[in-house]
Amino acid sequence: MQILIAGASGFLGQRLIPHLRSSGHQVTQLVRRPARNAGEVWWDPMAGMVDTAVVSAADAVINLAGAGVGDKRWTAAYKKVLVDSRIDTTTTLARAIAAAEPRPRVLLNSSAVGYYGDTGDRAVDEQSPAGDGFLADLCKVWEAATVPAEDAGTRVVLLRTGLPLARDGGLLKPLYLQFKLFAGGRMGSGRQYLPWISVPDWLAAVTYLLDADVSGPVNLTGPDPVTNAEFSAALARQLHRPNLFPVPGFALQAVLGEFAGEALVSQRVLPGVLTREGFPFRHRTIDEAMAVAVNA
């Protein structure tokens, strides 16, 4: 399969490209700097510019583009960056797909479990409604930006990704260092649910969805969401470190600002579509996933 991928510079994208190539796919990467080799093509999503011939040549498009949610404090300016970096890229690709002839068969477009807001102890799946808050509102407009591709007849899959576990990226990166330094513990009350997924399962799920008869939202989360306290205990077990130093909510607020409120929400998100499809999770428990993340 010929795959066109955008936003592959993050820790997931950097893993996805070699994974796809090792699975036999041909991959072309959209980049915003000058292209350096035959596997790269320049584009300017903020200006709505992408080569439609390159889009037309693709069997599938994967869009992972978007500024990091936890990379900076949520000033008004950075919240605009978070929105624009997702909407501009998705809109540009969706319109290019709609205009292409022939069109790619499928668009896998990033979204996030932030769509559901704070679910408390209530389990949710893809049939559950959107929640409230900045991230939920962002996910709604982000997903809506794919409509031109869907209306043109391309199968669209919305990748509502949870928390992929890797010691060099995402939520686990700062926690890994804290625990290694014997300073780890739960965040806030520890009762909030975390929708984790192992990176190998995330990669396998994305590859599976290229050909699966599935459209619409798909939760990329493990089958057994755990509380933050259970998550922290699993990390402590893997690193043979104590789990003694909780980070109170007010401390997170001082460091993260408005993002602290989102970091402490509870999201008990289940992978309903993948489960119904019989997707073979390799890492079904937090201990299995944490072992892979820590020892990879």
Rank of each mutant, 00 (worst) to 15 (best):
residue 262 E to T: 09
residue 180 K to N: 14
residue 74 W to P: 03
residue 286 I to K: 05
residue 52 T to W: 10
residue 217 P to S: 07
residue 43 W to C: 14
residue 49 M to W: 14
residue 97 I to A: 09
residue 279 F to Y: 13
residue 131 G to D: 02
residue 281 F to V: 01
residue 177 L to T: 08
residue 215 S to C: 14
residue 55 V to D: 12
residue 296 A to M: 15
residue 187 M to F: 14
residue 134 F to L: 03
residue 249 G to A: 14
residue 256 L to G: 02
residue 52 T to L: 14
residue 101 E to I: 00
residue 74 W to M: 07
residue 249 G to Q: 07
residue 99 A to R: 11
residue 208 Y to R: 12
residue 231 F to R: 06
residue 217 P to T: 07
residue 250 F to K: 04
residue 107 L to E: 11
residue 27 V to G: 12
residue 108 L to P: 00
residue 250 F to D: 04
residue 94 A to P: 06
residue 273 V to D: 01
residue 212 A to W: 08
residue 266 S to N: 09
residue 265 V to M: 10
residue 202 W to Q: 15
residue 141 V to K: 03
residue 200 P to W: 01
residue 179 F to N: 03
residue 121 D to E: 12
residue 123 A to P: 07
residue 228 N to M: 02
residue 27 V to P: 09
residue 126 E to Y: 06
residue 23 S to P: 00
residue 129 P to H: 05
residue 133 G to D: 00
residue 69 V to D: 03
residue 90 T to L: 11
residue 148 P to I: 09
residue 123 A to Y: 04
residue 166 A to E: 08
residue 222 G to D: 01
residue 174 P to G: 02
residue 131 G to P: 00
residue 264 L to Y: 03
residue 96 A to L: 03
residue 277 E to K: 06
residue 78 Y to Q: 13
residue 143 E to M: 05
residue 172 L to V: 15
residue 52 T to F: 09
residue 262 E to L: 04
residue 29 Q to E: 15
residue 185 G to M: 15
residue 156 V to H: 07
residue 102 P to T: 03
residue 34 P to V: 12
residue 210 L to N: 12
residue 63 N to Y: 11
residue 158 L to Q: 14
residue 284 R to C: 01
residue 67 A to D: 15
residue 104 P to E: 14
residue 201 D to Y: 11
residue 85 S to P: 09
residue 160 R to N: 10
residue 56 S to G: 12
residue 45 P to Q: 10
residue 147 V to S: 09
residue 46 M to K: 12
residue 138 L to R: 02
residue 250 F to E: 01
residue 34 P to A: 14
residue 178 Q to V: 08
residue 179 F to P: 02
residue 221 T to S: 13
residue 199 V to Q: 13
residue 192 Q to I: 04
residue 286 I to R: 04
residue 218 V to N: 05
residue 49 M to I: 15
residue 279 F to R: 06
residue 173 K to P: 06
residue 239 L to W: 04
residue 243 N to V: 04
residue 114 G to N: 00
residue 90 T to Q: 07
residue 193 Y to E: 06
residue 246 P to Q: 05
residue 1 M to V: 02
residue 77 A to C: 08
residue 194 L to V: 15
residue 202 W to A: 15
residue 59 D to C: 12
residue 240 H to K: 09
residue 231 F to G: 00
residue 170 G to M: 02
residue 280 P to S: 08
residue 203 L to V: 13
residue 58 A to G: 14
residue 146 T to A: 13
residue 57 A to G: 13
residue 83 V to D: 02
residue 58 A to V: 13
residue 227 T to M: 10
residue 3 I to Q: 06
residue 34 P to K: 13
residue 156 V to N: 05
residue 245 F to R: 03
residue 144 A to V: 05
residue 245 F to E: 01
residue 150 E to C: 06
residue 22 S to N: 13
residue 26 Q to T: 14
residue 123 A to S: 10
